[in-house]
Structures are given as structure tokens and as C-alpha cells.
Design a protein around this nucleic acid. Structure first.
Lengths: 353, 353
DNA sequence: GTGAAAGCGCTAACAT
DNA sequence: ATGTTAGCGCTTTCAC
């Protein structure tokens, strides 16, 4: 529970002694003003005479000075740093999300502290660690979070946003694809294709994305008078999908169409079907994924899938972050961004001749 | 050039006022000791009586106090934070590298500040920004760096390590695959396959990885008495590879075998060959990539390639970092880790019947 | 509009 | 082994 402060690395020496990092004192001396004036020169709203400003800035340029943000944060209680906790970085979708976040945050002149957290407990550790470093906000991607961590963040007034994950705690801001609606759309598509025996290859069992996609899928199947899907476990991974499809197809009552919880597991399922089982897609089995990663469009896969609007989701997250950082007491913000069915060739569109 | 300090975000308020972050003063009072004793309790080597230590720690636990690392860094001149500048995050290989770095740095109790930098100028901006935040070291992945940035880092004693990139400045530490040797190995392989008209699909023209792979390839071809390869430009991307192969094959003297600067462009070339041009691999053309990303093993690609030993490279980088952080004046450390030829089915192994 | 003084939370140097 | 003092680099009163 306690932070490992007693680690050996603490014996490491600090920065080289002779290193000359200019401070406001030096600039003040060179410009012939007081330290507070230098500070004012670097504080946008401050009242300062234009000439003085110019003189200070010239001195600052000469010494290539800029205020030490860490010292500044000691007083301002802002670090201009956002913490990013990534749950499942092996999925290309989240890799693009990560890039989206870092590049856009940079553009807003915010620093990014990255942590990877394989499971929900390490999310707690990560958040705690980020809070110690006084980040101004935390984004948690594709992973849940313990209410303990939420509480600690709330106590110090640091907003948390969940990206593509929901938790029971309804007091949390979040941005996600409308996974349930995505699942429903897939049910409709497969129904149009004339399929009746359907299956779903689960992602991670506890992920809300997985649960919601399945819930929407099953719900809509029910409305259409179709039986609930067969279930298998694919762990959101290529290997998982490839194994899962074999278990499904070699079981008693093989499905006619399979909905995979994400694209990567769908690629695994696709390869399992054609290379391991010698079946054709979509002639023998229809297959649908979720995410629309770039590879899904490659001819080798040509995967019908539900697109998550990555850019839109990232933008929504950053906009929400802005609002929450301005006012930590604001009620939680929630975005459910509709996915978009991308029809390619891996699923039959009409009943077989 | 100057940092955009005058941005609007500075008007954003700091952390919630009521937020109670305990400080050493509070702990000192509760434990009935002085503030310096509290400090000592959290400083591993410090001389402190076991009973006092216990009492302080109990008080700290009660207030859930831990020292503010930012305030601490003001004096110690260490932030326990490493800057990571990523050049081309769209390549899955570097996405895995990124994950490797963040998870391993976390394990060493170091924070990671991430920046993405599309070009060499933005690397300079990124490094400067990281230096302002007093990172203890900087890792630059898959991108070059300006000597200005190197100079600034050196001036403040912050080590920089280049990951998979070389620059003229020989005073820089770096870790990379022995790209030249990798290129030579591919030349040998294709020669064994009986190919004589060869081509190389370039990655990014200025990337040292690209130059070295090509140099090794060409060099070894020369030694084997083969003509230098035809050249095309694939930009290290799927689309680039797919277009490049078309230009090559539809040109006057189509090659018998093609070496692609990385796996992703090789996938593009492969799809171009079979889906756009109707050719078979390796029957009509042999194809080799570089990286050995997980997808290369998927049956759909089954790509012969040169494996970069990602984990080993990441470990070597972190070990070097450790040494350099301990002694910034230490001479540059260089690792050239041999790649490994992974033979799959995309390249012929013996001359055609 | 500007300077002096106080203090953010911490550690280091010097006492004892 | 512990307390006192000074100061890291900055901003923020509060005077003028």
C-alpha cells in the first residue's frame, strides 16, 4: 500500500553540480528590476509597463531563461500535466488513441505522464502515483478503476475521465462509443444476412465495452425473434479469437455468423476459419468485428466492423477535461458517441441463394 | 522559438482550494518531532532512531502523507521522471517499444513523460519542453535530433539516449539493431534463393535505420557479385509499400525479389503483389521485411523478416540510462544488437526448379 | 506599475 | 540522533 520510497535509486545523485540553470534572480539583476517584476513579465494578466516587459524579456532571452514550472506549481498548484493510464496497449485502436492524446495535449501545451496498467489494481497504483506528482487531471483508457482511487482523486480535486469504460460509480465522467447500439447494429446486419444461429466471441469478461456490445447484440437478437448467441472467450486478442472460433465450429451446433468483440480477435477468428478449419468467409460463415482499425480495410481481411470514431472521442475527452479542470465540482460529463457500421466483405448481406 | 507561456490556459484556476494535501509540518506536529526528522524518516540512508521512525511513519500513515516529489525535486534536482520522445508511433514495433519502456520504467519507480514528434524539429521542441520540466533523462525513439537540443541537454547534464537512430554527432549514446548486418543477412538469403535482380523499398529517406539497412544490403550484394538493387520509396507505411511495388513491377525491368525497409511496408507490398498485380509470393517474387512484428507470423502474411530484439533493446536502453544518470560525464554508451533472420514463406530458399 | 517580504513543501548545513 | 536555520525558484500579498 505505501509508496516504495525506500528504493535504492534514491542514492542516485542529482543533476550535475555545475549545471547553470538561470533563475529569476539572474534575470532580475540583468534587467535591473526586482524578482517579482520578472515573475509578472511571465504572468499574462499581470500589470506591467510595456517597456519594463520588453526589458525583462530581452534579459530572459539573453540568459535563455524561462520560469521553472515545478517551482511555479508549488504555489499555483497546477502542473500543466495530465496523467494517462493505459489499460490494454496491445490493441492498435488504443495505440492510435494514445498517439491522439499525446499529440493533441502537446498542442494545448500540456505535458503527458504515461502509465500502463495491466489490471484494475495497478490502475489504482498508477492514479495514486500520478496524484503524488500533482497532475491536473487523469485520463484512464480502456480500463476500470477502483472507487478508492476515484475517492483520492476527488479529495484533492483532480478530475478523472474514463475513456471507453464504464463503472458502477455513476459519478464519473466518461467518453465512450455507444457500444450497446453498436452491438444492436451488428444484430440487424446479421439478421439481414439471413443468419439464425449466431455466436459472440467475448473480449475481456469484465470490460464494460465487452459487456455492452454483447448486451446490445443479444437484446436486438431477442427483438428480432432470434435465439441468444453462443458464447466463447477470445480475450480481445488474435490468438484468443483463433482458438475461440475453433471451439465454436467444432462444437455441437456451429454458428452461421460470428460477432467478435474487437477487430484483433476477429482477425484471429478469420484466420482460424480459413487456415485452420478450411472454411470460407462469408460463404460458410459471416464474421463481424468492432473498432475498424486500419488493418480491417486491408484486402487480406476486408472485415465488416463497427467503427469507433477515435478522433471525435479524443476531442470530446479533451474538451471535457478542459471544463473539468476549470471547475472540478462540475457534475460528471458523459459522451456516448455512436459507432458506424462499416460494411465490407466478411459478412453476407442477404440470405444465401 | 520561445515557449508559449502567454497561452490562454494560464487563466485556468489551480487545484480546488479546500483540498487538503498533508505536508511534513502536519506530520511533524502529530508525531511530536521537527520537520527535518520527518524528512529524514523518508530519506533511506538518514540517521534516525528506530522508534522515532516508527512514530513518524504512523503519523504519516494516519494523514496519508507522502513527501511532495515536486517540492523535493526543487532541492534534490532529481524528478525521477524520464522523458520519452516518440518519432513514428504508427509503426506497431514502436508501439510495443513504448509499452516496454513505460512498464519497465514504472517498475523502476520512474515516471514517464511522453511526447510525440513527427519530425526532427519537433524533437527539438519536445526535448526543450522536457528539459524545462527537469526530467532526469531523455529517450528519443526512432527519430533524429538536432545538435542544438543535444547541446542544451548536455549543458544541464541531462543524458539523452537515441533508440534505433544514429546521428552524425558521435558523442551520443544509442541503442539500436545492427541494421547494416541485418541488410547483409537479407542479401545472403535472397542470393541463396537464386535471385539476381533485386529491389529495395526504402523507408523514410533520412532515417538512419533505412540508410543502414540499405547500405548493408547493397554492400553484401556487391560482395556476392550481384548488381545494386532497384530503389523505390515506401515511406515505412502500408500504402507506401503497396504503391512502391506496383511502380517496381510495372517498370522496365521488374525484380525477382524485394527487400522492404520494414514489415508494414512489406505487408503493403505483399498485398500489392497478390491483390493488385495478381502475382504469387514467393513463386513469382520473393519478399522480405524488417522488424518481425507479431503480424508477420500470421498465416495471411507469413513474412520472412529480420527480428529486432525489442525486449533486449529496451533493457539495454534502461541499463545505459541508469549508468548515465549516475554519471552524466561518462562517455557515450553504444549498443548494436544483432537482428535475427526469421525465415518464413515469403522468400524462396533455393533457386527455382 | 513596482518593490519588499512572506511562504509554497521540502532538504541540507550546521548546530547540539 | 535531533532541532534550528537557510534556501531551492517561484508567486503572492501588501505596501507605496
Amino acid at each position: 500500500m505505501t509508496a516504495p520510497l525506500d528504493d535504492a535509486s534514491r542514492t542516485r545523485p542529482g543533476r550535475k553540480a555545475g549545471a547553470a540553470v538561470p533563475n529569476s534572480d539572474a534575470v532580475a539583476r540583468l534587467a535591473g528590476v526586482s524578482r517579482s517584476t520578472v515573475s509578472r513579465a511571465f504572468t499574462p494578466g499581470a500589470s506591467i509597463a510595456p517597456v519594463t516587459l520588453e526589458r525583462v524579456m530581452a534579459a530572459a532571452r539573453e540568459l535563455s531563461y524561462s520560469p521553472n514550472p515545478l517551482a511555479r506549481s508549488l504555489i499555483s498548484r497546477r502542473t500543466d500535466t495530465v496523467g494517462l493510464v493505459m489499460g490494454h496497449p496491445e490493441n492498435p485502436f488504443y495505440q492510435e488513441v494514445l498517439t491522439g492524446f499525446t499529440s493533441r495535449l502537446q498542442r494545448r501545451d500540456l505535458r503527458v505522464m504515461c502509465q500502463t496498467a495491466p489490471d484494475i489494481e495497478s490502475v489504482e497504483d498508477s492514479v495514486r502515483s500520478l496524484l503524488r506528482y500533482n497532475v491536473d487531471a487523469v485520463i484512464v483508457t480502456s480500463s476500470g478503476i477502483t472507487s478508492a482511487a476515484v475517492g483520492e482523486a476527488h479529495a484533492v480535486g483532480v478530475p478523472i475521465i474514463l475513456f471507453n469504460r464504464t463503472v458502477e460509480d455513476d459519478a464519473l465522467s466518461r467518453v465512450q462509443t455507444d457500444n450497446r447500439r453498436g452491438g444492436r447494429a451488428v444484430a440487424d446486419l446479421l439478421n439481414h444476412g439471413g443468419h439464425r444461429r449466431l455466436a459472440y466471441i467475448n473480449g475481456l469478461e469484465n470490460a464494460s465495452t465487452n459487456r455492452d456490445r454483447l448486451a446490445g447484440f443479444t437484446e436486438r437478437l431477442g427483438e428480432l425473434g432470434l435465439p441468444p448467441p453462443l458464447l466463447e472467450y477470445g480475450e480481445y486478442s488474435y490468438e484468443g479469437g483463433r482458438e475461440a472460433i475453433k471451439r465454436l465450429m467444432l462444437g455441437g451446433d456451429p454458428p452461421e455468423a460470428v460477432f467478435c468483440a474487437n477487430d484483433i480477435s476477429a482477425f484471429g477468428a478469420l484466420d482460424g476459419l480459413r487456415y485452420d478449419l478450411g472454411l470460407r468467409v462469408p460463404d460458410d460463415v459471416s464474421l463481424v468485428g468492432f473498432d475498424d482499425v486500419p488493418m480491417a480495410a486491408w484486402p487480406c481481411f476486408d472485415l465488416t466492423t463497427v467503427r469507433q470514431r477515435r478522433n471525435q472521442m479524443v476531442e470530446a475527452t479533451l474538451d471535457s477535461l478542459d471544463l473539468l479542470m476549470r471547475d472540478p465540482d462540475r457534475p460528471p460529463i458523459r459522451h456516448d458517441i455512436p459507432g458506424r457500421l462499416i460494411v465490407r466483405r466478411s459478412a453476407r448481406l442477404a440470405p444465401a441463394g
